[in-house]
């Protein structure tokens, strides 16, 4: 029901892009600390939004609010016109939002392949009995999962490591595995939390291409949190800058680079201005 409602209203005209995600006056308070204050965004289909800001600006908190890892204090979150503010995390993921984590969260005791296969569970149609009895319906689904997993591993270039333990992978590949795992839930909106952290320049360049490629291939709308300006300035169409939970700037990469408020937040300015 819910999924159908989402499908129905997709417009075909390229000019009138549909709103994927809408955050209205979203505020999060941890006791007296305002982590996110009156955050607004209207994200159109296929857009790639960058979210930047100094440490502790509330970027990751916004991701946590979108997927309801923590509840919002005030405000409203809509996904394809549906209010998801109060939905549980697993329901939200099922609707088509996927994310990766700043501090990689792989299933360390499982193989690379299994990590990705796990992500298909959310759309599994067979019930427990069908799965345990290994009935044809489940067998088909399992085959489908295997095949799709293989495709995703190829997509990010880790197919040769399929049976390795996920924790044995080098850092950069773990990040890629996490992206592949997120893609396995067949999302419409992908939230990437510092995907380039800990990567060398070559890997970062490759990651840029990967993000752009998967956005194209899987028709994704993407939000990226990143500290690495080479990533954010190259790939995002629009950037929102946060500082202490407050949105201080919004615009295209070139606009952001010239914005005095952003420079101040990042570099700090002498006392006479403060």
């Amino acid at each position: 029901m819910i999924l159908q409602a989402v499908e129905v209203e997709r417009t075909t005209e390229p000019n009138v892009r549909q709103t994927v995600l809408k955050l209205e006056h979203v505020t999060k308070k941890f006791g007296g600390l305002v982590a996110v204050s009156d955050f607004n965004v209207d994200l159109k289909e296929g857009e790639l939004l960058g979210l930047i800001g100094p440490n502790g600006a509330g970027k990751t908190t916004i991701f946590n609010l979108i997927t309801h890892v923590i509840p919002v204090t005030e405000g409203k979150i809509e996904f394809y016109g549906k209010d998801i503010t109060k939905l549980s995390t697993d329901r939200i993921i099922k609707l088509g939002i996927a994310r990766t984590f700043q501090n990689i969260r792989l299933f360390s005791n499982m193989s690379v392949k299994e990590n990705i296969m796990t992500a298909f569970h959310v759309h599994l149609k067979s019930d427990l009995f069908t799965a345990v009895a290994f009935l044809p319906k489940y067998r088909e689904e399992e085959e489908f999962i295997q095949q799709k997993t293989w495709e995703l591993m190829k997509e990010v270039g880790i197919e040769h490591l399929a049976d390795h333990k996920s924790s044995s992978l080098p850092y950069g590949l773990q990040r890629k595995l996490e992206i592949a795992r997120a893609l396995a839930t067949s999302p419409k909106l992908l939230l990437l939390d510092e995907p380039a952290a800990g990567m060398n320049p070559d890997e970062t360049l490759e990651l840029n291409q990967l993000i752009l490629r998967i956005r194209e291939r899987y028709k994704l709308t993407v939000i990226v949190i990143e500290h690495d300006m080479k990533v954010i300035m190259n790939i995002s169409e629009r950037i929102i800058v946060l500082d202490h939970g407050v949105t201080i700037a919004e615009g295209t990469p070139s606009e952001i680079q010239q914005n005095p408020l952003v420079i101040k937040a990042y570099l700090g300015v002498g006392d006479e201005d403060a």
Partner: peptide
């Protein structure tokens, strides 16, 4: 097994 390894990640995969 996903729940055993990392509850937060499991939940964020829709489990």
């Amino acid at each position: 097994k996903a729940i055993r390894d990392d509850e937060v990640a499991a939940e964020n995969l829709g489990i």
